[in-house]
Amino acid sequence: MYRLKGEGLSKRFGGLKVFSKLSFDLRTGDSMAVVGPNGSGKSTLMMVLLSIYRPTRGKISYLRDENSMEEAQIRSSVSLVSPYLNLYDQLSGEENLKFFATVAGESVTGKEIERLLEKVGLAGRGMDLVGGYSSGMKQRLKYATALLNKPAFLFLDEPTSNLDAAGKKIVSEVIEEYRSQAIIVIATNEQEEYSLATKQLRVDQ
């Protein structure tokens, strides 16, 4: 059982207040939509939760069976899909997946990669360079990369951006598949994506 706790989280960049006093407590099986208008700090909150930015105030706790997780454990348990996260354009889809699996300490077989690519609708395109992919295909590959480590914490920032109807369906399927085994945090301002989560956190207060 995993747990993600945010207590009194605030973030400022110099004199600019991004968000303040946000608190939540999520356990495996929970999913939370972080909602608010453009510029309200949804993506910044994601970066704070992922320790890319430090919170100005407040505390974030990653727990497993109520014990604090170490940095390396957290790194191997989290995944992010975000417009700010890019994969390598000069590598093929398969090469990207193999690389990220290896540096994450996962062993992944060719068949597993094929299965992942098929799951996100990129069957047969794994050998193509990512630079030749459309923005929607790149977004799908980000999902395949995010699922490599079977994450216990799945962070989705604007999860359906650049995706067509089929891509959006894949996102819904991924969330449904991981809902019971992971904590899912979704940053979005799309009304239809609110329903993908069971809880809501507003950041525009």
């Binding site: 992922l50 989290v78 890019n86 994969l87 354009d89 990220f100 540096v103």
Partner: peptide, 17 residues
């Protein structure tokens, strides 16, 4: 510049990098 640093930070051990 390519925006790949974020993926590396989230995935890879800094020592390995």
């Amino acid at each position: 510049e390519a925006g790949t640093a974020l993926a590396m930070k989230l995935t890879a051990d800094p020592d390995a990098i």
